[in-house]
Design a protein around this nucleic acid. Structure first.
Lengths: 166, 166
DNA sequence: TCTTGACTTAGAGCTAACTCTAAATTTTAT
DNA sequence: ATAAAATTTAGAGTTAGCTCTAAGTCAAGA
């Protein structure tokens, strides 16, 4: 006897609905059943569930996680595919972490902006704080993500409008 | 004249469909229109779009992003709310980064596991590699996320089954 | 001027990932 | 023994966030 679906749900912070959904989607083919038909999770099943969480939490779709499960069931002939998959997922995760750090820089900037704004009761922050001007330029000024294409006909920048950087 | 919706879409890597959807959802009330009705994005609009991306990318729902936009429109009386929001979002982001690092540890473990497995053509990795045994225990052994409740009646651990840690 | 492509709106359609319901069965506690 | 709680299945319903279509308008180049 291992763990019931409710015990696993509580322990892993996943609803029983979701666990049954994962099973239905083919993510839990290793989970045994008791003679009367109840799911019976082993420690290995829970470990696999942690890996599923990990793949899902790094942006993998359920149909792609199922591919991994299929490879597991196919045995040692798919070891290389599984290694490749985890290496691809690691690269993906590294990109996500870089993006989160970029978001953190922007949020830190906003926090400092609003701290000054709250302290003075207005948003004339850049007139008071040259450091924030510098950071704003670094974070938002001309990222040039895509190679700049043709601009609109009359492409002079308009003067700063109502909602300047809030 | 600023940027057309297509120019913004290309520059920011967001489809025109999505930009119009954001507008419909009230996220882009500051975007002007030309006399003939075309959207005309300013640099400030694009900067706000970057913040929207940032909030969305750190897990905020569109209805909550709209609340921020509403506060922007309400002016200086909502500065404190906006500061609080960014500080909450920063905490959320820190949690996300911690979780991603945890995922990274698990993926690194899997990569090392499968490198050994591929090298030897089988999954008897733990018999060869004591370091991986140690790391496996550290990563998956008895996390005790929730306070352990009543175990199942006959709660002896079952012997390792077919799919042990793959 | 004509043509081609980008833009507009309203609203329908789609997808992924759950989330729940109903009716029956099983387990646990008293 | 019996009541309450947990589980089972199949299948319907929900949600968020797009994504697309249709029918029409606007803009830029030849």
């Amino acid at each position: 006897m291992g763990y019931s679906i409710g015990q696993v749900a509580e322990r892993c912070g996943i609803s029983t609905y979701t666990l049954r959904y994962y099973d239905k989607e083919g993510l839990l083919p290793f989970v045994k059943k008791t003679p009367s038909g109840l799911r019976d999770f082993s420690d290995q099943d829970i470990e696999l569930l942690r890996i599923i969480e990990c793949l899902k939490g790094t942006g993998m779709q359920i149909k792609d996680i199922r591919q991994y499960i299929v490879w597991l069931m196919q045995g040692d002939s798919t070891l290389q595919q599984r290694l490749d998959m985890f290496e691809r997922q690691k690269e993906r995760l590294q990109m996500q972490m870089r993006q989160l750090m970029d978001f953190m820089d922007k949020i830190d900037f906003k926090i400092d902006f609003y701290k000054d704004a709250v302290a003075h009761g207005d948003t004339n922050v850049y007139e008071r704080n040259p450091d924030l001007v510098r950071r704003k330029k670094k974070l938002f000024g001309c990222c040039a993500a895509a190679p700049a294409k043709k601009a609109r006909k009359n492409s002079t920048r308009q003067s700063p409008n109502s909602a300047d950087c809030q």
